[in-house]
Design a protein around this nucleic acid. Structure first.
Lengths: 295, 295
DNA sequence: CCAACCCATACGTTTTCGGTATGCCAATGG
DNA sequence: CCATTGGCATACCGAAAACGTATGGGTTGG
């Protein structure tokens, strides 16, 4: 059962003549005649009534014609769809992002993506750092928005921006009256910390910052998300050192202040599998860079 | 775009390995590998990720796989459907019948057909004699139930039975008291006739019957259908000479009596195009014969 | 470091396809 | 009644595609 045969069959059925169909198919009449007879042999029944003025479908031929036409269309659509997916004009891109970046990036990123790649399904999932890495590796997400980047031999990283660390505190805190907080003022104050470095690399950047300035902050609580951290800060449980963009999702009553002697920042990066050959990743990267530039 | 390629592609995608797929396809591995690469060249993008432990679909490959599977199924279903239609286990049979036979045959014929050819669509249409012939010739009906048969070089006829002519009259008619009516008693009485012989060959049989017995019956009315004829008979407009089976659709108040000296009858026949090769016709014929035998 | 596994390439053989020439049949027209 | 025309079928040949065998190369696992 060959698709070429079916194509020839459809052509002959539509032209109601072998000769006319051969002309339209840019081939000679005899080989076309042969192919039709081979198809009939394969089916085991005549598909055409041969008249003196051309060919006419039998009932069996009519039954075949419908399916053959659909099969041809499906096959053509299939390779077209594959091409479109390969070219990035169709398909799906699944994005794993981290919680802090949701408020800062998604409201601008999603419309930007819809404009750039209108035929593509978007799929966003808020994932922890370790889950993002795992899902990138098993390909269940296409790209990850990370802060900081994932380091892994299979994973490619593009740095698209950085966020300075800022101190988050309740607005009734005495430190809130300063326009920038000297590092020394943090000494001994309770810290609301994120998961330890082995689970969340962002924490190691904070730890490094404090270590460099020889500041010790007792850990009042460890929380999973920046959102929880800010809630505890608001409750007066302690201070948090967070990327500046966390401000965008902060509740009323939290203020952010820069740290005077520290110019430390944390990278925002797009990460994907090295062997992902989807052209959508390039486009995604462009969009993400554009959004971060206006942060 | 070849269906064989798509079949190979689906096999490799399902086996996730060229070697396994080749084994299942009963062929060697290298040619299969070549075909897959040719398909990829045709699409213009890789469809598989080659790993060290087999092959894995890319996104483009996944997009193709869905359509390719459907296309294969449709093509296979198409030739299967064509075979089924040719074998008579599927398809459509369109039956043109004449009005008088409706009550006599259809209630038994339709269930009989449904039992014999369950996968076949039935399509019944009540048609005049000339329309039946025309629709047989242009193939818009497959078979016709006729009384009497259609005579035409393109049309094949099978006689499946006969109906004696009977006299239809109101039950208050004096003739109704006889168990059989002598031909002579018809002389001069008004006749309710069907369309003239050139339109309906049944009329010529009636005319011949009367001529042979030298009876003259003035034509009170010409009507299109047996049903109308019986209405007029009931109204006392005249008598009608009808096939015995018309009794089955007769209204209350009409009686049928045999004609004593006349053993004339009219053939019931199944007619179809000589070049209709549908095996359904044979089955239909069998069913119709069985029904007529029990009339 | 060797063996096993799996895909890719190379080459010769076979099958299949397409083109040209031609035959057959029916309908048409003088 | 014969010639012509139009349309499909058959025969044969050259070309293209596919298949099988042999082999290479890369990675994994012992």
């Amino acid at each position: 059962m060959d698709l070429r045969r079916l194509r020839y069959f459809v052509a002959v059925a539509e032209a109601r003549s072998v000769g006319k169909a051969a002309e339209r198919l840019r081939m000679a009449q005899p080989p076309l005649s042969v192919q039709i007879r081979k198809l009939e042999a394969e089916v085991g029944a005549p598909l055409f009534r041969r008249g003196t003025r051309g060919m006419d479908l039998t009932e069996a031929g009519q039954a075949l014609l419908v399916r053959a036409g659909e099969a041809l269309a499906l096959a053509a659509d299939g390779i077209e769809a594959a091409r479109a997916v390969a070219a990035g004009s169709r398909g799906r891109i699944s994005v794993g992002y981290m919680f802090v970046l949701a408020n800062a990036m998604l409201p601008r990123l999603i419309p930007e993506l819809r404009r750039s790649i209108p035929g593509v399904d978007l799929d966003f999932a808020e994932l922890s750092a370790s889950t993002r890495e795992a899902r990138l590796l098993d390909r269940s997400v296409t790209v990850a928005l990370c802060m900081p980047a994932i380091h892994h031999p299979e994973i490619q990283v593009a740095r698209i921006g950085a966020q300075p660390f800022m101190l988050a505190m309740p607005n009734r805190s005495p430190l809130a009256r300063l326009s920038a907080v000297p590092m020394a003022r943090l000494q001994g104050r309770p810290l609301i910390a994120l998961p330890p470095p082995e689970q969340d690399p962002a924490s190691s950047a904070v730890a490094a910052l404090l270590r460099r300035h020889q500041i010790v902050m007792p850990i009042a609580s460890r929380v999973e998300t920046v959102h929880s951290a800010m809630s505890l800060v608001l409750a007066g449980e302690g201070l948090a050192i967070l990327p500046a963009c966390a401000k965008l999702g902060a509740p009323q009553g939290i203020v952010f202040r820069p740290l005077r002697e520290a110019s430390d920042s944390i990278d925002i990066a797009v990460c994907w599998r090295r062997d992902s050959q989807s052209p959508l990743i390039r486009t995604f990267l462009k969009c993400a860079e554009k959004v971060v530039a206006r942060l």
